[in-house]
Structures are given as C-alpha cells and as structure tokens.
Write a protein that binds this DNA or RNA. Sequence first.
DNA 1: GGTGAAAGCATCTGGTG
DNA 2: CACCAGATGCTTTCACC
Lengths: 149, 149
Amino acid sequence: MKLDTINWKILTCLQQNARQSNTEIARKVGVTSPAVAERIRKMEDAGVIEGYHAKVSHSETEHQLKAIITLRAFMGRLKPFLETVKNFDEVVNCYRITGNENIVMEVVLKNQKHLEKFIDKLITYGETRTHIVLSNVVENNPIIKRLPA
Amino acid sequence: MKLDTINWKILTCLQQNARQSNTEIARKVGVTSPAVAERIRKMEDAGVIEGYHAKVSHSETEHQLKAIITLRAFMGRLKPFLETVKNFDEVVNCYRITGNENIVMEVVLKNQKHLEKFIDKLITYGETRTHIVLSNVVENNPIIKRLPA
DNA sequence: GGTGAAAGCATCTGGTG
DNA sequence: CACCAGATGCTTTCACC
C-alpha cells in the first residue's frame, strides 16, 4: 500500500496516542474527520495498522522484574517449546532467531522466586541464559517515515 | 494502586483494542460508561496505563528485516551510546541488561544493506552480536490478572 | 457508582474537483 | 476516486442523586 504524507502523519498521531478522536487527528493533519476515518479504515484493511493496544505498567501491576531470556533448544525440543510458550503468561514477546540460540524472550515476573520457577519451566526445553533488565533506554519507538537506507 | 476485577476487565479490553469506545467497554464489563471513563482516568493518573499506541506493520512499511542486537560496550563508551541510541530510528526497543553484554536492542531494517550500515554505526561503541528474527512466536502478550507466583 | 441533559464526535449522504 | 460539507445518531462529559 502506498503511504503518502497525510497517512504518515495519521500513523504518527495514532502511535503517540491511539485513543485521540479522528476529529483531533483531522485538526493536526489538516483534513476533515471523515477523510481521516476513511484513511484509517483503509490502512487497517491493508494491514498497515495491526491494532491499538493500551500499554500497561509492569511495575504497577506487581511485576517488578523484567528479563531477557535466550534459549538454546535441546534436540527435538524446539517444536514443543514453540507450542507451549504461547501459554506462558510471563512471556510478553518471543522471537525465533538465527545464531547460537534459537529463541529470545522478553518476560515480566513478580520477584526472584517467580523468576526461579519460570526458569525451572524452561529447563526441559533447552539451555537458557537470563539477563535482568536494568532500564528501558528506548521503549516502543514509533515508526516514522524514513529516507531510503 | 488497587486493581479490582472490573479494572482488570477494563485493562484487558484496552489491551485488546484501545480504540473501542467506553460505552462498548461498559457493556462488556457490566457498568455504565461514565464509571468506565472515571476508572480509566484514575488508572492513567496512577501510571497503571502508560499510553495507547497503534501497532504499525513493519513489513508493510518497507522494513522487511527485524533483528535482535546485543552490545558489549567498550570502556567508557556505554554512556555515549545510551545518549545516541535514542536518535536511531531503527531501534524499536533498547534495554540495559545484566550479564556479559550491556545492551539488547530490537531493531527494524529495510534490507541487508541497511543492516550493514546500522552495524557500522554501532561499531565505535562496542562489540555487537546480531540475531535475525525469523518469526514472532508471541507478540505483545497482554498482562492479565495472574495468581501469585 | 448511577442518571439525565448538553456538548462533541462518528458516520452516512449527497455534491464537487 | 478522494475529499468536503451538512444532517443524524452515539458517545462523552458534567452536574446531581
């Protein structure tokens, strides 16, 4: 799908605050609200916009620990893991990757005991490496129109 | 902040689709829409809800490559990196972590040439390890009310 | 937390370049 | 074909219970 300047501006608005009204976006972008509504609908249909999600604080919901865990799956244990990981509430994001490890996960946990229990759950699938997150340097950086690389 | 069952239901709704109306949430949760509006406002003020963001497709915006890159900073180069990384458009998420590496980043790129250029930008800050993302196994798994660990 | 009135917004229609 | 302008029906917001 072709994205012109107006669509990029709309995307920028929606990435900043998805809950603002079409009218407000219309004012910022310089068109009328029906035009914004139609453009948004088309971008949704084309798959450019994949959804709108509230970001919920981990710390405010008693998940004090965040960690990056990599997994190097044992022979024949990758497939079972891929099916099971969807049911792990602790896993916020999980990617299959190239390299020495097969999997990298971003997990949120309540405390050290919770982390220990979670690593115990992984131990049958492969060898893990855990990195505790100290701080978020960049968080959900919006995609903006960029010049060709 | 104390989160009761109604607030957890509202959070679940907003994590699924942040752009639905309060009235619609009110119907699903079983209270009136002004009650929903007030609960949302309080959760925003308390920092439980950190924001609402449209999820924009990487592939549909010509960013065909996704990668996880870890960085082991050279002596005295971590601080300069932390200040610079905010300006790298390619970096969607960046965490400071414990362990052998100091930094893990999630980056989106247009193609291999773009990846090469990006790694060249990192080379003055430290030693990098790049893992190409093959697939998203779990993506933005919502936080739901969970029993104590 | 509910109710009801007023303001604001989304959506549909017809009309224009 | 995309946009604008105006009318209708929801939604949000506020005062009050």
